[in-house]
Structure formats: C-alpha cells, structure tokens
C-alpha cells in the first residue's frame, strides 16, 4: 500500500539547511591563556567572508576579550563555513524524510527537555519561530532560552543533512560497485528517519496514544542557584 510519490519528492534535494532560511549553526569554544569564550549563533553562508573578521573584532571589543581572540574566532567561523560549503551542490536525499529532534539543554536556570518530529522536506520550517512559540506557550521568560532552542534544532538538522549527503554518496558508490545488490548504508547516530508507512499509513492514526503523550511532552524546569552551580562544576570537570 504505497501512495505514489510525485516528482518533487523523488528528485534529490541539493544540500542546504532544511529550513526556510539557509542559516548555518556556528558554535565557538575558544580558550586562550585561561580565558574561555563559548558562543553559539547562526550565520548566513551567502554573506561575504569579510563579515567574519568584522564580526570577530566587534565581538572581542564588546566582550573586552584579549585581541588574540580575533583571529581564533574568525578562523573558527571560517572553517565551519568552509565545511558547510564543502557539502553544497551535492545531493542530500530523495523522498520523504521525517526525523525526530530531541532537545535536552540548559540555559542559565532553565532546563528544557523535549522531542518532536521534523520534516526535512518542509522548507517552510522555521526553528526560530518554533522556539519563540515554545517559550511563549511554556511561559519561559529568560530571553536566552528561545535562541538556544532554535540553535539546538538547527545543529541537529545540520548534522542530519550532512549524514544524508554522506549516505547518499555511499549508496551511489555502492550501486556502481556491486550492481543489483541492495545495500543501504545505516546512518550513524540516533537521527534515523522515522518509518513513514508505519506512522502515516492508512492503518495508523496520527493521534498518539494517551500513554505516549508524556514522552512527547515538553518538560521545562527552573533550577535553583545551587543546582546551576553544581551542574556547571560538573560540566567543567567533564571538559578537562
């Protein structure tokens, strides 16, 4: 019982962020002479590269960091942008692909846990808008939470996009090598696309069973100062 798939979905999609805006998640974690700078933001890959240096200088100046950071920041951004561009123009995936996105993050005092499904073919999707509604519905007041959620979604989408480029390439090569043999590379990591026929087939209901509601329910916790300190100390230990 397969519904026919029209041309749009059969055509492979060229690599890009599977969202409305093609913004690349950039994560910075730089330590120089005991000073550590951590940051996460999105970057438009079609912006001119000169912007990167301008941005780095500006950041260093605003945060009053030592000047040695400027080159480090610029290099880090640049290399991450290069990695993104290296995938551009390649086929990403063909057909429908819906992946589960899991959130488990802490921003200052707020702890967020959630999971939901994301359609990689829906180029109307907007992680930032999603995060904004999430914060509004859950009554989160900390303005840093929204961007952090959006960034976490983008990071996962980015990773899935890279994986699918790799697996698309592998499957092409394996087809050349072993003609006729059916071989589908198992993608690494947890982000395996959901079984569409099982979830959306004519026999199943898209309304989840009552007992599953809790699994997909977003959890937001506000931590006390002590808990935050303990967590930060733990993270610090893990880092070293």
């Amino acid at each position: 019982m397969k519904t026919p798939i029209s041309g749009f979905y059969r055509n492979p999609v060229k690599f890009r962020m599977p969202t409305a805006e093609n913004l690349v998640p950039i994560r910075l974690d730089i330590e120089i002479e005991g000073q550590r700078y951590k940051d996460a933001f999105t970057w438009n890959p079609s912006d001119p590269d000169s912007e990167v240096v301008v941005f780095a200088k500006r950041t260093v100046k605003d945060l009053k960091l030592p000047p040695a950071f400027v080159t480090q920041i610029a290099q880090s951004i640049q290399s991450q942008l290069l990695e993104f561009r290296s995938y551009e123009g390649q086929d990403m995936y063909a057909g429908e692909k819906i992946v589960p996105i899991k959130l488990d993050l802490r921003v200052n005092h707020t702890l967020v846990k959630d999971q939901f499904l994301w359609d990689l073919n829906n180029f109307e999707s907007d992680p930032e808008e999603f995060a904004r509604i999430f914060c509004k519905d859950m009554g989160i007041e900390d303005p840093e939470v929204g961007p952090a959620i959006a960034f976490a979604i983008r990071e996962q989408l980015y990773e899935i996009a890279i994986q699918s480029v790799v697996s698309a390439r592998e499957s092409r090569m394996s087809k050349k090598g072993r003609r006729g043999a059916e071989y589908t590379p198992i993608s690494k990591g947890g982000a395996v696309a959901v079984d569409l026929v099982k979830l959306f087939g004519p026999k199943s209901s898209v309304v989840r069973k009552r007992k599953e509601w809790d699994v997909y329910e977003p959890i937001v916790d506000l931590l006390s100062n002590e808990e935050v300190d303990a967590l930060e100390a733990k993270e610090e230990r893990n880092f070293r």
Binding site: L117, D119, N122, F130, R208, W213, E217
Partner: peptide, 19 residues
C-alpha cells in the same frame, strides 16, 4: 489551547502542525 500542548499528542512535522 496552545500549540505546544497539541503537538505532543500528534504524530507529524511540527512545522506543519503549527501551520
């Protein structure tokens, strides 16, 4: 009713569900 309440009970792309 908020969107976040609804989506936990429905299987599907959250972007579309929001739409």
């Amino acid at each position: 009713l908020t969107f976040t309440e609804v989506r936990k009970s429905l299987v599907g792309d959250v972007t579309f569900l929001h739409k």
